[in-house]
């Protein structure tokens, strides 16, 4: 069974007085297998964030279903959804979303604390993870004291510490300089190699070129996908660029 299955997903935003409707997603179908690293590529406004919010059950679809480990998240009551999200999903956002009232360490502990874990267990889990992500020297600092790249790595640690079934990332490199971007992407590849399933949405070709599979989304529809196969990052990068060029010149993608 796929770890994530998306069937005929549709999302329509209605403005407050119902006067305007935006169809942010339509006819979205795809599935993700255990251990995959899927990138969803698209222009700004193409519906990527909407898709991710639906995957995470932060929002409800207008129609269609999202099955996570076979569970339809939209059908769960609010309080179970929160617990489900906490236990099964990890998040990384473009704008880090660290709480500035917590040290990096406490930010990372947050989901575990909510899950009622003991401090000892939390500390045991954090130590290897912090080393892997290269933030072990920064744990006592507050978000405002560290760089963007460091914040994003802390956010990744917060997402990974619950050992989630899927790591969801929304433009995780969007607010980073190129060096931090490279560091973060190689970290993602590294955790993927040890078996972590990742779904990342991005408009950056470079970010997408680290994935094992790339979905292309435009005007709310998935219209193409690429598999890495045996390609290197550079070769995948080239293929993605080509696909986008063909798209830009108006041709059909084979």
């Amino acid at each position: 069974m796929s770890i994530l299955e998306v069937r005929d997903l549709r999302k329509v935003y209605t403005s407050r007085f119902g006067t305007q409707q935006v169809e942010a997603l339509r006819r979205v179908n795809f599935s993700v297998e255990q251990g995959e690293y899927v990138a969803v590529m698209g222009e700004s406004g193409s519906g990527k964030t909407t898709l991710l919010n639906l995957l995470a059950a932060l929002d409800k679809p207008t129609s269609g279903t999202v099955l996570l480990d076979g569970v339809d998240t939209a059908s769960l009551p609010e309080k179970d959804v929160a617990a489900f999200r906490r236990d099964h999903l990890g998040f990384v956002f473009q704008e880090f979303n660290l709480l500035d009232t917590f040290t990096l360490e406490d930010n990372i502990y947050l989901p575990l604390v909510l899950a009622g874990k003991s401090h000892k267990e939390m500390a045991e889990r954090l130590a290897p993870l912090a080393r892997e992500l290269g933030i072990d020297g920064l744990l006592k600092k507050y978000p405002y004291e560290v760089s963007g790249g460091q914040k994003q790595r802390a956010a990744a640690a917060r997402a990974l510490i619950t050992e989630p079934r899927i790591l969801l990332a929304d433009e995780p490199t969007g607010a980073l300089d190129s060096r931090s971007t490279d560091e973060l992407l190689s970290l993602f590849a590294q955790v993927n190699r040890r078996g972590q399933t990742i779904v990342m949405v991005t408009h950056s070709v470079k970010a997408a070129s680290h994935a094992t599979r790339v979905l292309f989304i435009r005007d709310g529809e998935v219209y193409h996908q690429l598999y890495r196969g045996k390609d290197t990052n550079e070769q995948l990068y080239q293929k993605i660029s080509d696909t986008l060029t063909v798209l830009a010149t108006g041709g059909e993608v084979r």
């Binding site: 932060l58 929160a82 998040f91 009232t101 909510l114 917060r158």
Partner: peptide, 13 residues
Amino acid sequence: RFGIMQKVGMTVK
């Protein structure tokens, strides 16, 4: 903060 906490898995309640 409200938004962030929700994303990390706290219920609105």
